[in-house]
Simulated assay, not measured.
Amino acid sequence: MSNVSTRLVRLLNMVPYFQANPRITRAEAAAALGVTEKQLHVDLEQLWLCGLPGYGPGDLIDFDFEGDTVEVTFTAGMDHPLRLTSPEATGVLVALRALLDVPGMLDPEAARSAIAKIESAAGEVAGSVAAADPEPVSGHASSVRAAVRDRRALEIDYYSASRDTLSTRVVDPIRIVLVADRTYLEAWCRTAEDVRLFRLDRIVDARLLDEPAAPPEPAVQAETDTSLFDADPSLPSATLLIAPSEGWMFDYYPLRVVRELADGTCEATMTYASDEWMARFVLGFGSTVTVLDPKSLADRVRDSAAKALAAYEPSGG
Rank of each mutant, 00 (worst) to 15 (best):
F65R: 15
R199T: 07
A146C: 07
C266G: 04
R83A: 13
C266L: 12
R10A: 02
A121Y: 11
R83G: 01
D101G: 11
L82Y: 05
D150P: 00
L11T: 06
L12F: 14
Y17C: 05
L200C: 10
S304I: 07
S160L: 03
E124M: 12
S138D: 01
S296D: 11
L106C: 11
T6N: 15
L47Y: 03
A308L: 15
G317H: 08
P108G: 08
D205C: 04
T239A: 11
S304C: 04
S287Y: 12
R202P: 00
H41I: 07
A298Q: 10
A110L: 15
G51I: 06
P212M: 12
L241P: 02
A243S: 14
P233F: 03
R145A: 14
E119D: 09
R302E: 12
G127F: 09
T183V: 15
S2L: 07
L283S: 09
G286S: 03
P136F: 06
T73E: 04
P103H: 10
A110F: 07
R199Y: 00
V291E: 03
L240N: 01
E88C: 10
E217G: 04
D232Y: 01
S274I: 04
V129N: 00
D251F: 11
L8S: 14
V102P: 02
G51W: 04
P173C: 05
L8H: 05
V291F: 05
V289K: 03
K38P: 01
T288C: 11
G77N: 11
L208E: 05
L11D: 06
Y184S: 04
I203K: 00
S296F: 01
A231M: 13
S113V: 09
A146F: 07
A29V: 05
R196N: 06
D101A: 15
K117W: 06
D293H: 14
A161C: 06
V9C: 12
V15W: 02
S128F: 15
R152N: 10
P294R: 02
S138C: 04
E109W: 10
A141K: 06
A30F: 03
V204D: 08
P134M: 08
E223A: 15
V144D: 00
L255T: 08
G67Y: 11
P254D: 06
F229M: 13
P87W: 07
V291T: 05
D62E: 15
M1T: 14
A147Y: 03
P314H: 09
V301F: 02
K38T: 11
A308H: 09
L235Q: 11
R190E: 07
G91N: 07
G317A: 12
S167L: 02
R152Y: 04
